[in-house]
Design a protein around this nucleic acid. Structure first.
Length: 270
DNA sequence: AAGTCTGACAACCGCCGTAGT
DNA sequence: GACTACGGCGGTTGTCAGACT
């Protein structure tokens, strides 16, 4: 089903991911977040490029990611949104993904090319699509169209979105509570099929804000589980990782690894 | 049973936008 | 303003399993 693993000329592994690699990546991101995709594989002990890690995390390993088994309403939503966003918006698949909690843009895109594209070609005037277009979504589409001529429309707080690509919000253990997305523009937003679409301009605004938000670490986990010197020095509390030099992070990582070896940290994944 | 075709999907690649220097 | 590095997106490819002949 997938490419057989192989190594390119730079020594980077390509192709299908092994269970061990998945575990390494998942474990690393749940503990430290993805502060820098390019550097991440080095620290996580993976012979992969950053892009590959990012893709694997977003499309497969991220908590709550749903795969396959598309419900009818989800498919209708995809068709509908694709119709509306298709040629207008750059972040088409991401925006569609935002309307389907748990679905990744890549997964939706694949589903579109594999199933839905043919359906819409065979039957471009599906009655249910019509119904959606004319009733459930009309309000939002109108707003979106209005936005094209009136950029001053403010985003409505009543629309609620779950960002598909955000980091684990609810790690299975409270020990992973170091990730803070309280300030993420999309958090707390509930984006459902029932109330159809949030306004497109709201989405776009949310996205633009979201991607520019620095990744913020909370040191709860580190302070509770690691020596004070690491908690205070290695990863400072609520400090943007963008401000951290790679070297200092690497030093902290080494200290952490030493600590793990000494204390047989249960979270250490080999 | 063997060969071919098709569907499904994980993963890669290239391009572009943005931020930092 | 120019350049560079990085993150992210959309399009495409590669491969396998099952269906079909």
């Amino acid at each position: 089903m997938v490419r057989a693993p192989f190594y390119d000329k730079n020594g980077l592994k390509k192709g299908a991911w092994s269970v061990e690699e998945d575990n390494k990546l998942r474990s690393y991101i749940q503990r430290f977040g993805h502060w820098n995709w390019r550097e991440l594989p080095k620290f996580a002990g993976l012979s992969r490029c950053g892009k590959s890690c990012r893709l694997r995390w977003l499309n497969y390993l991220q908590p709550d990611v749903k795969r396959g088994n598309y419900r009818e309403e989800e498919e209708l939503m995809i068709i509908k949104l694709h119709e509306e966003l298709g040629n207008k918006y750059k972040l088409k698949w991401s925006m569609i993904a935002a309307s389907l909690p748990g679905r990744s843009d890549n997964d939706i895109k694949n589903h579109w090319h594999a199933h839905l594209k043919k359906c819409t070609k065979k039957n471009p005037t599906i009655s249910k699509m019509k119904m959606l277009s004319n009733e459930a979504c009309q309000h939002d589409v109108d707003i979106a169209r209005k936005t094209e001529t009136d950029s001053s429309v403010s985003s409505s707080p009543s629309y609620q979105v779950q960002e598909s690509s955000q980091l684990p919000l609810e790690p299975s253990s409270s020990e992973f509570s170091y990730l803070s997305f309280d300030n993420a523009p999309l958090s707390g937003i509930n984006w459902t099929a029932e109330n159809s679409l949030a306004t497109l301009e709201t989405l776009e605004q949310s996205f633009s804000d979201f991607w520019t938000e620095p990744f913020v670490l909370d040191n709860t986990y580190i302070q509770n589980n690691y020596p004070e010197s690491l908690a205070n020095g290695g990863f400072s509390a609520s400090q943007s990782c963008y401000n951290e030099g790679v070297d200092s992070i690497y030093e902290a990582m080494q200290e952490i690894e030493n600590y793990q070896r000494i204390n047989e940290d249960p979270y250490l994944v080999n």
